[in-house]
Computed example of a mutant assay.
Amino acid sequence: MSTVTLKGNPVTTSGVLPKTGTDAPNFKLVATDLSSRSLNDYIGLRVVLNIFPSIDTGTCAQSVRTFNEKASQLDNTKVLCISKDLPFALARFCGAEGLENVESLSDFRDGNFGKSYGLTFVDGPLEGLHSRCVVVLNEDAEVIYTEQVSEITEEPNYEAVINTLS
């Protein structure tokens, strides 16, 4: 388990992020068109997993906007924005914002993504949602970077992610 904070108050996650140098756990998530996506759909691409509690919060929304902007500058790279929000909410947000360089995926059906990546909150007011994390994978789905943001209300380190992919 890991501990992060929400406005200074400790919150515990279900485990720890996958370690750098290991194979990323496979997943099955729901796209905004309600189709299923798995890690295998992205083999051969570098993948940024931008994981957050809910698109309907300012910090989460900003992370999607920022990665959308930065993703357009990265070769052979796909940014997946992952939360437990319903696919309809993710589609509404990205459509209203005109965001086309990221792909939104939902873990609402069974929560197995959050469990296998060790980032589901197990206590606190956001219990059951995902911790704010970034996991970067190479073309072979090996973990090459991880960050679990220590204070949920803060944004991830975008520059470290971009530097990992440069």
Rank of each mutant, 00 (worst) to 15 (best):
R65C: 11
V136E: 10
A141F: 00
E151S: 13
E155H: 09
P18R: 00
N40L: 15
D85N: 15
S166P: 01
K28M: 11
N101A: 14
S72V: 13
R132Q: 10
E154I: 01
E151W: 09
I55E: 01
P156I: 08
D140I: 02
E155W: 02
V102T: 15
L129F: 07
I55P: 03
D33S: 06
R46K: 15
E69L: 10
V135S: 07
K28R: 15
D33L: 05
F52V: 05
I43H: 07
A31V: 03
S166Y: 06
N163H: 09
D33P: 04
G118E: 10
Q62F: 06
V48P: 03
T12G: 00
A141L: 01
R132A: 08
G124S: 14
S54Y: 05
S2Y: 06
I55R: 03
D75P: 13
D23G: 14
G8D: 12
F52M: 05
L80H: 04
R37Y: 09
S166G: 10
S116Q: 13
L80N: 05
V136Q: 02
L45Y: 10
A89Q: 13
E151H: 08
K70N: 11
Y158G: 06
T153A: 12
D123Y: 02
K28V: 14
E100K: 15
E155S: 12
L129A: 08
P53F: 04
G124K: 06
T20A: 10
K115N: 07
F108D: 12
G95H: 02
N76E: 10
E127Q: 11
T120P: 02
A24F: 01
E139C: 06
S36W: 12
D41A: 15
K7I: 09
T12L: 00
F113M: 00
S14L: 01
S54P: 07
F121P: 09
G58E: 05
C60F: 03
G118N: 05
E155D: 08
G58H: 06
Q62M: 11
G21L: 05
L45C: 04
F88L: 14
G118L: 07
A91R: 15
E142Y: 00
V64E: 03
L45A: 10
L126M: 12
H130C: 13
G98L: 04
S104K: 01
L119Q: 05
N163M: 09
Y158Q: 08
F67L: 04
L119G: 06
D23V: 14
L86Q: 15
V149C: 09
Y145M: 07
T20Q: 12
E139G: 04
T146V: 08
D41N: 15
K84V: 12
Q73G: 15
G118D: 07
L90P: 07
S72W: 12
T5V: 13
V122A: 08
T66L: 02
P25E: 01
V136P: 03
V122W: 02
A89T: 14
V47Q: 09
R46V: 02
N9D: 15
T57Q: 02
V161E: 03
S150D: 08
N9A: 15
